[in-house]
Structure formats: structure tokens, C-alpha cells
Design a protein around this nucleic acid. Structure first.
Length: 222
DNA sequence: ACATTAAATTCGA
DNA sequence: TCGAATTTAATGT
């Protein structure tokens, strides 16, 4: 249970809900806090909730075919994920780890399904998000072939700037170069070099504790 | 790995 | 509560 103002703050999708649906959504959400490095969800465990990042940053990682751990997504404040597992009622195919102190919001499966069945606004939002997800995974497969750090960094940043997945996202992203490295699977020095290259191309600006992206199109294209 | 700089925190008034 | 001093965090090389 979370109060309405807090709900609107942490879940952009709740703002357009019908009054009754919004009330139920608030009742079905709870928040939890995790320390840096904590595992929020273990792989293969059934975890019956849709997860939103209220503040902080998490990474999703799974085991690739050859047994290596691969981070395939970073989710920051405003992002909601795991709808696939909830819809299908299946086990998590990935592990979720906090990269910094993080507060997550959990929408229980029962409420999720009720909203899906009874709220047109919620369903529309979900379809939109799932469709965006498809695009994301297609991009992943293509990008994963490319091993160059520049593409990896660009991909990690672009996915976090996606305006559909992050309705409230602006041009600025609060993320350290260390965290960029962790998301892109690179050492911090390499992440630093890649970020500077992107800055030289005029795609973004590096700042203390974050980046400001001025050309999201170009970033996505990489 | 190290030097530099920015930010957050502490502390004395 | 203000600002200087100190400590911690992030960056650049």
C-alpha cells in the first residue's frame, strides 16, 4: 500500500488510470529498500510481482549459453520491468542486483492481472511497453555481436533514455562512469574513454556524476 | 594505480 | 544555521 501522491511519483503509468483502477493499484504496491550490491531477485525463483525502480539503479543479468554472466539491461528510477514473468507466471530468467542504494516498488501479481483485465488504460500502457521491449531485445541481439566498447556504452545509455520505458526521463542521466562500466560490461577506464569519444562526436556531455545526452537519435543508431 | 577535482559531510562558532 | 575544513566519491590519464 502506497499513498496516491507517492504512487504518481514513482509510477508514471498510474497517472492515466481510471479512478477505481488507480485506487487498486495503490493498494497493490509496496516498497522495499536495498543496499548497494544487494540481490533483489534471484534467478530461477518465482517472484510474483511487477517491479518498478523508485530510486537508484539495478542491473539485470543472466547466464549466457557458454555460462558467462551477462548484464543485459540497466533499469533506473521510473522504469518498470518483469511484466513477461508476471504475465506468464514463470520463473525469473535473470537476476536483479542493486548497483547503488535502491528503492523498488512491487505490484503484486493479483493486482497486476486485475488491472490488465479491467483497465483499458493499463492494458494500453502494457502493450506499448511490451512492444518497446521487443525492439530492445532485437537491438540487443544485433549489438551483442558488436564487441566495441563504444556501441556497448551507447546501447546501455540509449536503453535508459528510452522515452517509452521512462516517460519522465529528460536529457540528463544521473550515472557514474563506474556504473556505466558495470552495465556495459567494461572497466571504468574503458567506459571513460568511450564516453569521451561520444562527447567528441557531440552526442552527449560528460559531467560529474552523470551525462547529458543531446543527440539520442545518434546514440540509438550506434 | 595515481593524481586531480567535485561534492558531501562534519564541525565550530 | 553559516561557512570553512575535512572526508569521501568521481574523474582523467
Amino acid at each position: 500500500m502506497v499513498d496516491p501522491d507517492r504512487m504518481r511519483e514513482i509510477a508514471a503509468w498510474s497517472r492515466g488510470l481510471e479512478a477505481d483502477a488507480f485506487r487498486r493499484a495503490c493498494a497493490g504496491v509496496s516498497e522495499r529498500h536495498y543496499a548497494k550490491g544487494a540481490t533483489i531477485i534471484e534467478e530461477q525463483l518465482p517472484f510474483d510481482a511487477w517491479v518498478g525502480v523508485a530510486s537508484g539503479l539495478v542491473k539485470l543479468r543472466s547466464l549466457s549459453v557458454d555460462g558467462k554472466e551477462v548484464t543485459f539491461a540497466g533499469i533506473h528510477a521510473g522504469g518498470w520491468f518483469g511484466e513477461g514473468s508476471v504475465l506468464k507466471g514463470e520463473k525469473r530468467q535473470y537476476e536483479v542486483v542493486a548497483l547503488r542504494p535502491t528503492t523498488v516498488a512491487l505490484l503484486d501479481r493479483e493486482t497486476f492481472m486485475w488491472l490488465f483485465d479491467h483497465s483499458a488504460a493499463f492494458s494500453r500502457f502494457l502493450v506499448r511497453q511490451l512492444n518497446e521491449r521487443v525492439g530492445f531485445f532485437i537491438g540487443l541481439v544485433e549489438n551483442d555481436r558488436m564487441q566495441d566498447p563504444l556501441s556497448r556504452v551507447a546501447g546501455a545509455l540509449a536503453s535508459m533514455m528510452n522515452p517509452v520505458l521512462y516517460p519522465d526521463v529528460g536529457q540528463h542521466l544521473k550515472i557514474t562512469q563506474e556504473e556505466v562500466g558495470q552495465l556495459a560490461g567494461l572497466s571504468r577506464p574503458v567506459a571513460n574513454r568511450s564516453l569521451k569519444q561520444l562527447e567528441e562526436r557531440g552526442i552527449l556531455r560528460c559531467e560529474y556524476g552523470g551525462v547529458t545526452v543531446s543527440d539520442l537519435e545518434a546514440l540509438t543508431a550506434l
